[in-house]
């Protein structure tokens, strides 16, 4: 606070004074009291005080460049406008960044446990109405969230999200696989809650695989930055790295990944690595729309890849490589010891 003598203060002088700004915005009680007293003692200065106050409030109520860019991008994304065509020149940099930040997040796969008993995390928001979407077997469901983010929800996966993102973070809950293209909004981080991990991003593109029946959860990053959280543990990975969470051992491992293989995973290729019957069966049920009953008596560890094969071909593969005989009866997968 500066001593104000008899010379009238200039507007720029007032506004450069933080205590005056606090007074205008009502953010500091002591400053408010000081300036209220000052105005009362210097009634002649009222017009200039009013001018200065108006300018402070005008500046506060103007969106910043970041806010403008975020809002514009969010709208055009929601409306599906061609970015190049409608983007102003200054925005093109943002879109380039967006493209670069395309990050791919792959959590997931298969489990030795019947992880059904694992509880779905409660969503920490009351007083919000939520939408729940379940993608049917063999289909990918396209969902557009109210912030402009796009979600491709994979077969058999469930996404829950609020009708409107009112809180300080955009929180959604996922069980299963989904590819996210999150619209950029620095003031509202996007958080995906899965049964095991929380994934925190500011705005980018990624793929999540997080079925509870899967043994591993994977997060593979192409560009940008992502933070993965589990209870008090938190990991940040850099592009080219994949974070693998082993649910059985409750351990994390970071390694390099092959981008081509990662892309195939996004497109629906299943990669099994010593997978249990529950994991294989659940994945096949989602991919081919067949039914499956978990059976803890079936003890197998299947490794292999499945991309474009028919369900019959897959069953044949299982028959060759395991100690069980598999077949379909009434569209249900059955396994019997050979």
């Amino acid at each position: 606070m500066q001593e104000k003598g008899n010379t009238p203060p200039r507007v720029e002088e007032l506004i450069s004074d933080s205590s005056f700004v606090n007074y205008c915005l009502g953010t500091n009680e002591a400053d408010c009291t000081f300036w209220q007293t000052w105005v009362a003692e210097n009634p002649a200065q009222r017009p200039i005080i009013a001018e200065a106050k108006n300018l402070v409030i005008l500046l506060r109520d103007t969106p910043s460049e970041g806010e403008l860019t975020d809002a514009r991008e969010r709208l055009f994304r929601t409306l599906g406008f061609d970015k190049q065509k409608v983007g102003k020149t200054k925005l093109s940099a943002v879109y380039r960044w967006m493209a670069a930040a395309a990050l791919l997040l792959c959590c997931g796969i298969a489990s030795l446990y019947i992880a059904r008993q694992a509880e779905v995390k409660p969503i920490p928001m009351a007083a919000q109405s939520w939408i729940k979407k379940l993608a049917p077997a063999g289909k990918i469901m396209h969902i557009r969230l109210t912030d402009g983010s796009l979600v491709d929800l994979a077969a058999g996966s469930t996404l829950r999200y609020p009708t409107l993102f009112k809180d300080s973070a955009r929180v959604v809950a996922l069980e299963g696989d989904a590819k996210f293209a999150v619209s950029h909004n620095t003031s509202k981080p996007f958080v995906i809650q899965t049964a095991d991990l929380d994934i925190r991003v500011l705005g980018t593109t990624f793929h999540v695989q997080s079925f509870q029946t899967d043994r591993y959860a994977r997060v593979a990053l192409f560009e940008g930055r992502v933070q993965v959280e589990k209870e008090d543990r938190s990991y940040v990975i850099v592009p080219g790295q994949v974070l693998v969470y082993d649910k059985q051992k409750s351990s994390f491992e970071t390694m390099q990944f092959d981008p081509e293989e990662e892309q195939k995973r996004i497109e629906g290729m299943l990669i099994f690595n010593n997978a249990s019957y529950a994991e294989v069966g659940q994945r096949l049920a989602h991919k081919y729309g067949i039914k499956f009953m978990p059976d803890p008596n079936i003890d197998m560890a299947f490794s292999g890849r499945i991309s474009n094969e028919s369900v019959e071909e897959v069953i044949e593969k299982l028959n060759f490589t395991t100690a069980y005989h598999f077949y379909l009866k009434s569209n249900t997968l059955i396994a019997k010891r050979k």
């Binding site: 969106p63 806010e67 809002a71 969010r74 709208l75 929601t78 409306l79 109210t146 912030d147 402009g148 409107l164 993102f165 009112k166 300080s168 003031s187 509202k188």
Partner: peptide, 12 residues
């Protein structure tokens, strides 16, 4: 944040 959401809805 509320105003930004409302503006988004308006233009949509």
């Amino acid at each position: 944040e509320l105003i930004k959401d409302c503006l988004h809805m308006l233009f949509c």
